[in-house]
């Protein structure tokens, strides 16, 4: 634990679940997510869909579905270029209840001035993790007439946050009084072209500052295995924690729709056929997910899985249990259940 830094923080008595944890030696953040990874545990993360609502309890309700099953929760930032509650606000609500949210920052909507301001704000609100993304194009969303910003890209963004954290300054060189202690992440999609260069791109992402990586949906093990082999050859699995994205598909129809309409989603025909021919397609979707999680865990250099279960969030616990990837470990969950929190507010 690094005393000088914590002394900057207001005095906390530890009774509030949102109080910052002590920063352990060799850790860049105060967060539990980094601690889980550095301790060598197989991490499980998932994604919360920010509500189309100004109601904070809806955020807590959605998060409570994952209690005891995940180590961190990604708060998406206008995913699919659709408007929702902001990632920063979702994260702030979650940190107050003690959760470990991952702030997703997309370069689509904000320039470097705004992003650096939000980065400081997020750290001040107790956020310990960020995920740097370029973001879906505005044309994919419900406001295609909006101005796409893309002042930075994901790699420049990671470098920016790294500069703020490690050099304690803005890009302009102006000094910060207290640097944001953020664990920096980036994404990779090993399943779409240029497949042979994706490991090289991963190297760039890590060089730019990414300490963990969350991948796009993996439904294709051979492609993932090739990618991981290249990543190991380049020594990248030693430099960053690689977390592989997995998906819970409700039906073959949804799978087909996603493949056609969601950029970057690759689902092989045999997966779709298997779900189509199953007696209980919904259950089959969860079995497929759990099996992929098990196979992913066996690959050398994989540090965890990231479960994306849009509109299937209630099944996240089920696939985690089914897969057994936690091997008996129970991730942190609030002492007070969501029902108690609701009673207080």
């Amino acid at each position: 634990m690094i005393e000088s830094e914590l002394s900057h923080n207001p005095k906390r008595d530890g009774t509030n679940p949102g109080d910052p944890l002590p920063r352990l030696d060799g850790h860049v953040s105060h967060g539990r997510f980094e601690q889980v990874l550095r301790a060598g545990h197989f991490a499980v993360t998932t994604e919360i869909a920010p509500p189309d609502s100004a109601d904070p309890t809806e955020v807590l309700r959605r998060a409570s579905l994952f209690d005891g099953y995940v180590d961190a929760i990604n708060a998406t930032d206008g995913s699919g270029a659709h408007c929702h509650m902001s990632s920063l606000a979702v994260c702030a609500i979650l940190t107050r209840a003690g959760y470990s949210p991952i702030l997703q920052i997309s370069c689509r909507d904000r320039n470097r001035i705004s992003i650096q301001g939000d980065t400081l704000g997020a750290a001040a609100l107790g956020v310990c993790n960020v995920l740097c993304l370029s973001g879906d194009d505005v044309s994919a969303g419900d406001h295609p007439e909006a101005k796409p910003v893309f002042d930075l890209d994901s790699i420049s963004l990671a470098k920016t946050i790294r500069t703020m954290r490690d050099d304690s300054q803005f890009l302009s060189g102006r000094k910060l009084d207290l640097a944001p202690r953020l664990f920096i992440g980036s994404s990779i999609n090993p399943f779409v072209p240029p497949i042979k260069n994706r490991a090289d791109q991963l190297a760039k992402k890590i060089e730019s500052g990414a300490e963990y990586i969350q991948s796009q949906y993996c439904f294709d093990m051979p492609v993932l295995k090739d990618f991981m082999a290249k990543a190991r050859d380049l020594g990248l699995t030693e430099k960053a924690y690689i977390i592989i994205g997995v998906g819970v598909l409700p039906s073959a129809k949804t799978a087909r729709w996603m493949r056609e309409n969601v950029p970057g989603v690759h689902i092989p025909d045999e997966i779709i056929r298997r779900q189509e021919q199953a007696d209980k397609p919904k259950l089959e979707g969860r079995k497929i997910c759990a099996e992929i999680m098990q196979q992913v865990k066996e690959i050398d250099g994989v540090a965890g899985v990231h479960i994306m279960a849009y509109r299937q969030e209630k099944w996240v616990g089920d696939v985690v249990k089914r897969s057994g990837v936690l091997a008996g470990r129970k991730p942190w969950a609030p002492e007070k259940s969501f029902a108690d929190i609701q009673a207080i507010s």
């Binding site: 879906d136 796409p148 893309f150 072209p193």
Partner: peptide
């Protein structure tokens, strides 16, 4: 379209 200087993004089609 995203003026990415260190690409590509993850949305490239098959």
């Amino acid at each position: 379209p995203k003026t990415i200087r260190n690409g590509p993004c993850g949305g490239v089609r098959a």
